[in-house]
């Protein structure tokens, strides 16, 4: 069984900001039903590009649920530029750490966030370097290596 921190368990049992945000103006979606994990992130961004509200829908394990919940808490109040710098490591740190095998669950959060930002700004996400290891989350091996390095 995974060693989840109390913070992870709390965010799993009592996820913050669950559901569809009715007046969202930025939406990012990653993963799929086939792959076993999926995240839909809703952001409400004001005219100063500040995130005034955020919510999520997640299909996945406890880390995926907790990471999504944490992500919405982290980005609320940030500008899009600030939010763009949020890493999966920040999400894990916010939760007091994730099991090594579960780091990819937080990568999914980062990926959905970037897509939401791109959705708002109407830009295409550039092709990423590296070899695609998980088509569903669009996670590359380099990202996983980064994530593993960044999280010891």
């Amino acid at each position: 069984m995974w060693e989840y921190t109390d913070k992870v368990k709390d965010h799993f049992m009592h996820p913050r900001n669950v559901g569809e945000l009715k007046d969202a103006n930025a939406v990012g979606e990653t993963g799929s039903l086939n792959c076993g994990d999926a995240l839909k992130l809703f952001l409400k961004v004001d005219e100063n590009e500040r995130i005034v509200d955020a919510s999520f829908m997640t299909f996945g394990c406890a880390s995926a649920v907790a990471s999504s919940s944490a992500l919405t808490e982290i980005v609320k109040g940030m500008t899009l530029d600030e939010a763009a710098k949020v890493t999966n490591g920040d999400i894990a740190d916010y939760l007091g750490g994730l099991p090594k095998e579960k780091m990819h669950c937080s990568v999914m959060g980062k990926s959905a966030l970037q897509k939401a930002i791109a959705d708002y700004r109407g830009i295409q996400i550039m092709e990423k370097p590296g070899e695609m290891v998980c088509e569903c989350f669009e996670v590359t091996d380099l990202e996983i290596i980064d994530a593993v390095k960044a999280n010891g």
Binding site: F12, F59, A64
Partner: peptide
């Protein structure tokens, strides 16, 4: 349908 096993297990575990 539409839910993930590990999450169910943790809720059962509680």
């Amino acid at each position: 349908d539409a839910v993930e096993g590990e999450s169910i297990l943790l809720m059962l575990d509680k």
